[in-house]
């Protein structure tokens, strides 16, 4: 049987000093996935790092709508950086050819 590591949302909120509603809002915005078992909200281990990152933004006084916009932009930045790296490598092929 496959097992998963979970942390309760309450523990997370306590440790990071954030209100419980913040996690609800992130979940509603589709920014994190949570598991609900026996009416208790759990955060899967795979979501923890992402949630910590979003919490960092929240602690900079950025609201959930702002966090959502930033997340989309960061995803785009990541894709552009990835494309740029790939194009640089391709460019190297031609540069080596002309040397």
């Amino acid at each position: 049987m496959k097992t998963a590591n979970l942390i309760t949302a309450s523990d997370f909120c306590l440790y990071h000093n954030v209100e419980h509603n913040f996690i609800n809002l992130l979940q509603e915005a589709g920014l994190v996935e949570v598991s609900i078992i026996n009416q208790t909200i759990f955060i899967p281990e795979k979501e923890l790092q992402k949630l910590e990152k979003l919490t960092n933004l929240h602690q900079l006084d950025i609201n959930v709508a702002g966090i959502e916009a930033i997340t989309h932009l960061l995803n785009q930045v990541e894709k552009i950086q990835e494309d740029m790296r790939s194009l640089r490598n391709r460019l190297r092929l031609y540069e080596n050819e002309t040397e």
């Binding site: 990152k53 960092n56 933004l57 900079l60 006084d61 950025i62 930033i70 960061l74 930045v77 950086q81």
Partner: peptide
């Protein structure tokens, strides 16, 4: 602090 941290936070400035 918060204003500048929003500008320079590592999570907002990858790499």
């Amino acid at each position: 602090y918060r204003k500048l941290a929003r500008k320079y936070h590592p999570d907002l400035n990858p790499d």
